[in-house]
Amino acid sequence: MTKVKTRRLVLTYMFAVFMSILFLFPFLWMTTTSFKTADQVYDNPMQIIPNPFDFSPYQRLFTENNFGQYLWNTVYVTVLTLIGVILSSSVVAFGFSYFRFPKKELLFKILLGTMMLPAQVTMIPQYILFDKLGWIGSFKPLIIPTFFGGTWVIFLLRQFFDTIPREYSEAAKIDGANEWTIFTKIYLPLAKAPISTSVLFVFMWTWTDFMNPLIYLTDDKMYTLSIALQRISSGARSTDWPLMMAGSLVMALPIVILFFSAQKTFINGASMSGLKG
């Protein structure tokens, strides 16, 4: 029995290591490129480890390319978006999952439907709408709509809420809990994993979103990191590879850190078994 277990664990490790190499390889290339000078990038044959190491791309990000300002703008938009989307979506998802009301499934189909129309054709009318509201050139079009729920998060959380056994809430009801209490005391604590997943994805999408900031912001000083990165890649005729890769990595780092902490909530069974008594 234990032999089988050990063998399986070894196999798992081998697979994980093998896949990790495949998955890490391009990342490694990005990292080494970010420490090269522009000329070193074109060395033939390619040098895996840069010689000498050049730290200037990272320096240039923050001096010439104003990454500090853009970083702050991106943090601002992302944090507010996170608050907006997670708060509103979890409430809405609970509404869709817990209650029975007329036309519920039709409304849910409409919710799914709104994701099916590609942004290319709603972009201009959407812009005209925000223009009429006088929001162009501010962060408002990026932030305010997020307080009305994010479709993706609503859908994800509903799928999870649906799996929560009714008995839990029935029991709470007998103890005199109202719907809001059931939501905050039972559903939310049970949905730690999907909520941290949602936080992760919303963070990632907002952090790297290019099109919305590009369309709605009109001032250089309000731009976000993704636009700054675009400027590096398409600005001059030749791509400044080290700068580009350094920028990409700086941009990716917060997401990686967030992921590393979020995945800790993915520890099997902890959430539900605790509530059994």
Partner: peptide
């Protein structure tokens, strides 16, 4: 984290 890494690389890169 390693398995997730590729998802955080900006699309252009």
């Amino acid at each position: 984290t390693i398995f997730f890494l590729p998802s955080v690389v900006p699309a252009v890169a």
